[in-house]
Amino acid sequence: MFLENLGVDAMDPLRLGRFWEAALGTISLTVEPDILETRLDLDGTAYLDLCFVQVPASNEAPLRLHLALRGGAQQAEVIERLRGLGASDLDSDQDEQPGIVLADVEGRAFRVLEERVEPAGTGPLAALLLDSAAPERDAEFWAWLSGWVPAPGVPAHTLRHPSRRGPRLELVPEREPKRPDAKNPIHLDVRLEPGDDPDEIAAEIERRGGREMHPDWGELPWRVHQDPSGNEFCVLPAPAVAP
């Protein structure tokens, strides 16, 4: 089982996906009118896919998973390049998280970090900031679920891919509890591997404080869950084994 996808609700997947491809330098996997999938390489073998999926109406729920881009000494130049791609400025005085806040082409907030808060080797996507009611607890949950490991020397309750490459997953204190009727506009997906039992995984998620959801979204090839703080994520089936 491993962390595979960043799922993003989009009104126009092609426009939003192309913005993020240009921002991060990722490579297209699937390009259809209702979905764009693009791959962020972590270390030559591991990856994180960004999946922009069309939704019937704009998701205005509070954002609980924020993207933070590497800025560093070139923060000002990075911001100008993002503005040229269609990003716009937002007020960054509304929270205490680091970085300059921008909005992507669908108006969703993200931030560009300064040099002092960036560890080495993140690549263009420096961090994923996930709201949590109990960051220490949820860091343990996501370490088990994702296969990512604690990252010493960066903010507390932070995980990274075992290669120590790619973005950090930071569990940050939530400003307000998750609204039960509000689906996260951005969520994480994990992929089962051959030999993983989906029922055993679901039972372990429950034991660790999460829960399985049964949304009325029709037949799905994956299972939908929430972490202990109510953040949705999907558990995708293991790839078919070639005969």
Rank of each mutant, 00 (worst) to 15 (best):
A87H: 03
L128Y: 01
L50C: 04
D91M: 09
R70W: 10
D9N: 09
A10C: 15
E96W: 10
G218P: 00
T45I: 12
A139R: 02
P198D: 12
A73R: 14
P221K: 10
G25K: 12
R164P: 01
E232A: 06
A134L: 10
W222D: 08
G153N: 03
A10T: 03
I201H: 05
D189C: 09
D43N: 15
D9A: 02
P194G: 12
P173C: 08
Q75V: 04
I27G: 02
I201N: 06
D12Y: 03
R70G: 05
P173W: 11
R160T: 10
I79A: 09
R164I: 02
L90Q: 14
G123Q: 08
A87Y: 06
W148I: 01
D49H: 11
R108F: 02
E77S: 11
E37Y: 07
E37L: 12
L171V: 10
L113H: 02
P194T: 13
V31N: 04
P243W: 09
V117E: 08
I35M: 14
L102V: 01
P150Q: 06
R165I: 02
T30S: 09
D43S: 08
V224E: 03
R137M: 06
D216F: 11
L129V: 12
L188K: 03
A127C: 07
D89V: 15
G86M: 05
E4P: 00
A127D: 03
V117N: 03
P62K: 13
L236P: 05
A202S: 15
G25N: 11
H66W: 07
A127I: 02
D199L: 14
D43Q: 10
